[in-house]
């Protein structure tokens, strides 16, 4: 099923939680809404589910207007951040709930409900917990039960709010892989909200990066990492070195000195130069655009992470770079740096 969101606006008082958001989700996609807290991603998810209503705009599920229907009529599976399992019901009854509250005319009989619940518990590999209560489960188990419960109603789409947010790091990693393989098994159009870039990049087919109620970029994980569309995306995804530069007449200057890199059509004026840590080429002093003294080196695994105090300017700019260990850096050494890949964005304000 497809989801289409058009010109959605949602305000809480003077605060614009969503500011004219447009989004199309294709059939069978596994999409991540990624952004810092307050970026509007959860609000967008809740609007699609029918748990919140926008001030303006349109939501279409499979081409059909969704805003005319309440949450209970949308057939949307929603997995809550804190699971929202019914604490007075067993795992079995939790999963069966959506089937039991169906109108009598379409409700399955008890045997069919049991079979369906069993099937779902098998799917999430927790059939042995059927008679437990939510309080007796671990966080990861609750998460999977919440998912099974949402899937019980055979939802047209599946929405997950910070599905791994409340779990510890190890469980989170396991569940990520599990969710991805589950999705390729059942292929329901799914959207999940996360503030964790690693999670978004690792699990989703496409990532929607949001900030302050706007969509900054939509793309594959590779796209948003390698070709960030905005300064925000570059800064939010992956670690970046950010240097304040001045663009004029096609040349780029740092603290007044020209850097040996092309402006790539960046507009003239105060700008920011973004370089990934591992995209700084190290060379002997005097061979690159930037020069600096190595202050501190830590080596782990295949890389060494060095703190470099850049020369020139006020000499106070310190950056961190990641370099392969083929050439061990020494503290106190003067080296030159040349960005291999970089992006220049106009500085805001």
């Amino acid at each position: 099923m497809t989801i289409e969101v058009k010109n959605i606006v949602k305000r809480f008082g003077a605060f614009a939680a969503l500011d004219n958001v447009d989004l199309k989700v294709g059939k069978g996609e596994l999409l991540a809404l990624l952004g810092p807290s307050g970026s509007g991603k959860t609000t967008l998810l809740r609007i699609i589910a029918g748990l919140d209503w926008p001030d303006a705009g349109e939501v279409r599920i499979d081409g059909e207007d969704a805003l005319g229907h309440g949450a209970s009529e949308r057939h949307v599976g929603f997995v809550f951040q804190h699971y929202a399992l019914f604490r007075h019901m067993t795992v079995f009854e939790n999963v069966a709930f959506g089937l039991r509250v169906q109108p009598r005319a379409v409700r399955k009989d008890e045997a069919k409900i049991r079979a369906r619940v069993k099937e779902l518990l098998d799917l999430v590999q927790l059939d042995w917990l059927a008679n437990r209560y939510p309080s007796q489960l671990s966080g990861g188990q609750r998460q999977r039960i919440a998912l099974a419960r949402a899937l019980a109603i055979e939802p047209r789409i599946l929405l997950l709010d910070e599905p791994f947010g409340a779990l510890d790091a190890k469980v989170r990693k396991e569940l990520r892989q599990w969710l991805r393989s589950l999705h390729s098994e059942i292929h329901v159009t799914s959207i999940f909200v996360t503030h964790d870039q690693e999670e978004a990049l690792e699990v989703a087919n496409r990532v929607v990066v949001m900030d302050k109620g706007r969509i900054e970029q939509i793309g594959t994980p590779g796209d948003v990492y390698d070709n960030p569309a905005t300064a925000f995306v570059h800064g939010f995804i992956g670690e970046s070195i950010v240097l304040p530069v001045e663009v004029s007449g096609g040349s780029v200057r740092l603290a007044g000195r020209p850097l040996n890199i092309a402006a790539d059509g960046a507009a003239a004026g105060a700008s920011k130069l973004f370089v990934r840590r591992h995209d700084m080429q190290i060379g002997p002093a005097g061979t690159g655009s930037l020069e600096g003294a190595v202050r501190h080196v830590r080596s782990f695994g295949p890389i060494q992470r060095a703190e470099i105090a850049l020369s020139g300017g006020e000499g106070k700019t310190v950056i961190e770079i990641d370099a392969p260990r083929d050439r061990e850096l020494q503290a106190g050494e003067i080296i030159s740096l040349q960005p291999r890949r970089y992006r220049i964005f106009a500085a805001k304000e």
């Binding site: 748990l51 209970s72 599976g77 929202a84 604490r87 959506g98 509250v101 949402a150 019980a152």
Partner: peptide, 15 residues
Amino acid sequence: QEEEAAISLGASGLQ
């Protein structure tokens, strides 16, 4: 949250 979960699973207000 539990009420919202119930609603999203198709339950009516009284249910």
